[in-house]
């Protein structure tokens, strides 16, 4: 594999639900080790984008390449092999409420990698420590955790299998600003330690500026602006300008968002 092969390459990606066209020909390239943040209003298709890359949704048209390998239409063991490269922190954390915290963190190790439970428990405790959770939390059920702790557990689970690509779906949503910043720091530390590629979707600009090397703006089903974090404040794009400043007036109408 060439060193210049993008980790993720999306080309002309289209997805519609009934009459609603969500992605209308999206192009995006993410380099290995890069942390990209996709910003955009609610309902612009950010979550659909991640779900298409992860294979949770099937795109109608277009190409998704992971490490240069086309994954659209991929099934069975080949798909599972690609899925092992992924980790994901869900917006709601997506913890299994029938399992304890440590079982949640160790789930991928036990089920996907076939690791023995004792060994997986030790790894789970190690990952929990990495996100600032003590071993005593491991025996709790997700229902006993606060929102911030759930995100930490979700993050520990996302990094437990040492994935090559980590997706973060609105990582700071529902958290107070201080907890949001703590989660941002944890994300940066975890991604750096693993040397992973990260794709984050958010509409929290503080989070986007802190986590990302690069920011891309999704609007109207496609990426309308793409640049470094430093460039975003100088972007000569009225859509980006309106979004990052949170202005009601501008080309983005609330009805379309």
């Amino acid at each position: 594999m060439s060193a210049t092969t993008p980790k993720i390459a999306l080309r002309d990606l289209k997805k519609r639900f009934g009459d609603k066209r969500v992605l209308t020909g999206l192009d995006l390239v993410v380099a290995p080790g890069e942390s990209i943040v996709v910003i955009g209003g609610s309902g612009t298709g950010k979550s659909v984008l991640i779900k298409c890359i992860m294979g949770l949704l099937q795109p109608d048209e277009g190409s998704i390449r992971i490490d240069g390998e086309e994954v659209v239409g991929m099934r069975g063991s080949e798909r599972e092999k690609v899925m092992r490269k992924f980790g994901m922190l869900f917006q709601s954390a997506g913890l299994f409420d029938s399992l304890t915290v440590w079982e949640n963190v160790a789930f991928g190790l036990i089920q996907a990698q076939g690791m023995a439970r004792d060994e997986a428990k030790a790894v789970a405790h190690e990952k929990m420590a990495q996100v600032g959770l003590g071993e005593e939390v491991g025996a709790l059920s997700p229902a006993e955790l606060s929102g911030g702790m759930k995100k930490r557990v979700g993050l520990a689970r996302a990094i437990a299998t040492d994935p090559e690509i980590i997706f973060f779906d609105e990582p700071t949503t529902g958290l107070d600003p201080i907890m949001g910043d703590i989660i941002n720091d944890l994300i940066i530390d975890c991604v750096k330690e693993l040397g992973a590629t990260a794709l984050t979707i958010t509409h929290d600009m503080a989070s986007a500026r802190k986590i990302g090397d690069r920011i891309a703006m999704l609007f109207g089903g496609e990426i309308i602006w793409d640049g470094t974090v430093d460039e975003v404040d100088r972007a000569d794009n009225p859509y980006v300008e309106q979004f990052i400043n949170g202005l009601a007036e501008g080309p983005i109408q609330a009805a379309t968002a």
């Binding site: 992924f86 869900f90 997506g94 991928g108 089920q111």
Partner: peptide
């Protein structure tokens, strides 16, 4: 009820992302 709750709280998506 159990599987439905897992669906609406993204737990089923989480299963897929964990190669299960």
């Amino acid at each position: 009820a159990e599987i439905g709750t897992m669906r609406v709280t993204e737990q089923i998506d989480a299963l897929t992302t964990l190669s299960t």
